[in-house]
Design a protein around this nucleic acid. Sequence first.
DNA 1: GCAAATACTTAAACGGTGTAAGAAAGCGAG
DNA 2: CTCGCTTTCTTACACCGTTTAAGTATTTGC
Lengths: 190, 190
Amino acid sequence: MARAGVTPERLTLAAAELADEIGFQNVTASALARRFGVKPAALYAHVKDLQDLRVRVAALALSELADRAAAALVGRAGKDALVAFANAYRDYAKEHPGRYAAAQIEPDPETPAASAARRHADMTRAILRGYDLAEPDQTDAVRMLGSMFHGYVSLETQGGFGRHPRDVEVSWQRTLDALDAVLRNWPPPA
Amino acid sequence: MARAGVTPERLTLAAAELADEIGFQNVTASALARRFGVKPAALYAHVKDLQDLRVRVAALALSELADRAAAALVGRAGKDALVAFANAYRDYAKEHPGRYAAAQIEPDPETPAASAARRHADMTRAILRGYDLAEPDQTDAVRMLGSMFHGYVSLETQGGFGRHPRDVEVSWQRTLDALDAVLRNWPPPA
DNA sequence: GCAAATACTTAAACGGTGTAAGAAAGCGAG
DNA sequence: CTCGCTTTCTTACACCGTTTAAGTATTTGC
């Protein structure tokens, strides 16, 4: 019987694809092994366990997402940059719901994907250079933007907005308008 | 052997408590049965299956959360109402992380918890009465607020804000200041 | 072309989910 | 009170996914 050619990288990629198809929570060692034409136990020669595999998928997703966001930012500033970044984020989550779900797992084990997380924060800070925000307001704004993007995408993909006829796409654009407005006119501390 | 007195209600409550202690994903029929001093199979006389139980916990959480938010809103308007609602939301999620996680599962099966979801949307609309927003801006703002609250709480509990010294509590207050500002000065369509 | 390293299979233990059959406890009516 | 019905719980079991250990096959390097 010829070898299947399993490697940690191919395993991670296959897990990511499977997650996008059937949901991150439904990615099992059995299903993955099936996809490779291999018995489940064979996977344990390449990854420590399922948790290890999930962390790898999370790192992959965060890295891909950071790449997309970085590409969207080149040559843009101000509201242009904000909108491009936000759309890159949201589009990735819609194209790759399984990967996006993976990216939400807690980044505990030291620093496997922590560097990717840093890239995201740095890019958000780069966007804010187009606005007039000094520390610590800048950090508050970074957190606000991150929350906004994640929250909107999260609720949208969970069907949380489905019960109202208003176009979700338009609400998204108007939300970005509102974010731009508040960044341009950041309120002073109470 | 005396009966354990299991009912769907007590089962749901115990599942919610267990979820807050060990995480919603780790609530198993076995663990629940152990807590009641009963064999796992006994639970299936009271709930159809685990999915059924999870939906019940989600409905409980959404209902409790709506009750808290409603209590926070009485006698308040404008920014007061916004802040009280937001804090009720965030405090509940921090006190009951397992329940909060349960509340995020997709509300597919017809309308078990859909009424609670409606209560949330209605309350958010009530807050917006303190601002000058007509439809469809109002719906956009409802979605923005919901995304903001969920996103912030979600990232905060996942440790997404831990890598920076800025006080997460202060960032939250400043974010609410920003939301209040943008609601008072909602930008017109481009 | 052989030895060592690597990939994969088989076998099995463990634990969770869920179903079916039966024992036992509670309940209502006479 | 007790007979019989309903409900609760147990036992037994089938199935699936995870993971380890031991063994077999394949590839690689010398």
